[in-house]
């Protein structure tokens, strides 16, 4: 089973929920941090990490001497990575999305495969939990290609081990967030009940609903904000999986890098119940899937 923890608005508690769920998960687990722009899960799970693996994306390399200025590559490239200026073809590898089209279309073989560093992939272990994450190179604009490579590694690990996956997604509702949740079995949306949290939660729900995955909501800092989100979830039939109370002691524990489910017996029970509800949600969808 693959569970992604996503949010819309940043700072609502995705990593808190991911770390707590991972800590109390009761079957073999791989914890994955897919927020490659700002990965934080390791700060709470403290995995022992092996040496990182560099992740690369194929981009072209230009041999100007072979270029006959036909312009086919410039016409094909949708990302302004190639242009002809003063009778010379110029390549901007940072703009490249790695589609491979220019290399395929060049009859003179002036363009050949080279690579650009996307970032690094880390693997490790914390207790019985396997850990996997990606860290985007500072200055790299494209997030999904690195995420895809982390996901590829994830697929290999779970194919071998059959482990469950809990995956910390990036904030937002555009391409990186979709890339994170698209292959999961259950999406857990974490939000707070403030006007910002509620607005971004609605956007997240609109974004993810077309994927047809079972979704549930965790309301963090419950008691702070308004009741709008409760009404919305009732209307749309979005199950409320857990509420984490608004409590300064929780915020302080988080600020010291603590896993929230370890803070008190009550919080441990909140996350144990969340774990069980996620399993039920996944089972229901499995059954519905088999009828369809």
């Amino acid at each position: 089973m693959k569970i992604s923890v996503a949010s819309g608005k940043g700072g609502t508690g995705k990593t808190t929920v991911t770390a707590s769920l991972a800590t109390i998960w009761d079957s073999p687990l791989l914890a994955v941090d897919l927020d490659v722009e700002e990965p934080n899960l390791h700060l709470f799970l403290h995995p022992e990490l092996g040496p990182p693996t560099k992740a690369w994306m194929e981009v072209p390399e230009l041999d100007v001497g072979k270029c006959n200025l036909c312009g086919d590559c410039v016409e094909l490239c949708q990302f302004k990575a190639l242009s002809i200026m003063i009778s010379t073809l110029t390549l901007y590898p940072d703009m490249c999305h790695g589609c491979g089209g220019c290399i395929a279309i060049c009859k003179e073989k002036a363009l050949s495969p080279a690579k650009r560093e996307l970032g690094e992939i880390y693997e490790g272990k914390t207790g019985d939990i396997d850990f996997l994450s990606g860290t985007l190179r500072v200055g790299e604009a494209m997030t999904p290609p690195l995420m895809e490579q982390v996901k590829k590694r994830m697929a290999v690990i779970i194919e071998d081990s059959g482990k469950d996956v809990i995956l910390d997604a990036p904030p937002g509702v555009s391409c990186p967030a979709i890339c994170a949740v698209i292959d999961s079995d259950v999406i857990v949306l974490v939000t707070d009940a403030t006007p910002f949290g509620f607005y971004d939660f609605k956007l997240a729900w609109e974004s993810f609903a077309p994927l047809g995955k079972p979704m549930g909501v965790v309301i963090n800092r419950a008691g702070m904000g308004t009741d709008d989100i409760y009404q919305f979830c009732a209307e749309k039939n979005i199950p409320l999986l857990a509420e984490i109370p608004f409590d300064r002691t929780i915020a302080e524990a988080y600020s010291r890098g603590r896993v929230i489910s370890d803070v008190s017996k009550e919080l441990n029970e909140v996350f144990a119940s969340l774990r069980d509800k996620i399993r039920v949600l996944a089972d229901q969808s499995g059954k519905e899937g088999s009828h369809a």
Partner: peptide, 11 residues
Amino acid sequence: GAPGIGCPVIS
């Protein structure tokens, strides 16, 4: 601005 350090932030 947006959170993160990727495409929209760089823009």
